[in-house]
Amino acid sequence: MIELKNVSFSYEKDRPVIRDLSFRIAEGESVGLIGANGAGKSTVMKLILGLCSGEGQVLIDGEQLSKANLYRLRGKLGFVLQNSDNQMFMPTVYEDMIFGPLNYGVTREETDRRVDAVLDRLGLQELKHRHNHRISGGEKRMAAIATILAMEPQAILMDEPSSALDPYNRRLVINVIRELPQTRLITSHDLDMILDTCSRVILLDGGRIAADGPAEEILRDRALLEAHRMELPLSLSR
């Protein structure tokens, strides 16, 4: 579904952030992208979404991402931003949810059906006509996920989905992520959440892959994690 082939990228000349990165995420797979600050996690997301481009190839569904097919291929991807306020830019939750589908030519009727289906599934019907600036942080995060689900993307990318959430809302978000049928790529420092939601983990360090394998295996490897400025998930360190 998502493939990176020898991708390199730098914001400044001679200071590469991503170095010759290659990996493949199969359809339906749930992958956690972890690493210390500055490891290049967010940049990898941006490269996959076509928000920046470097050397090498980014393939979505076997098709190389380019300016010509950017609009179409982005329709297959959904991105949940770390800051939900930046994602929820319309006045109400409903309007935010219809924004994506309508832009992709889905009819109003079908869009409304999708909106109701997603809100029912997430138990958020009562948020439908609420103003985005009047809902809580947890509700906003759930609504942000709902806006992406309404687009019915094939793959969902999430940047720190559990950040700034209280334990209850964090658990809610984790449960929702676990039940998503789509391909998922999640970046987070919350390794317990990664352990709960991902079957595979890619550990980045200095723009390179330091480890790639089953989540259980990598997240239990104290020596590996500590060598890359990380710690065992709390649930495994007791």
């Binding site: 991105f79 830019f89 994506g100 992709y104």
Partner: peptide, 12 residues
């Protein structure tokens, strides 16, 4: 960020 978010949802 906001503009990126709009573009990612097909804004043109």
């Amino acid at each position: 960020e906001l503009y990126n978010s709009m573009q990612l949802r097909g804004y043109h």
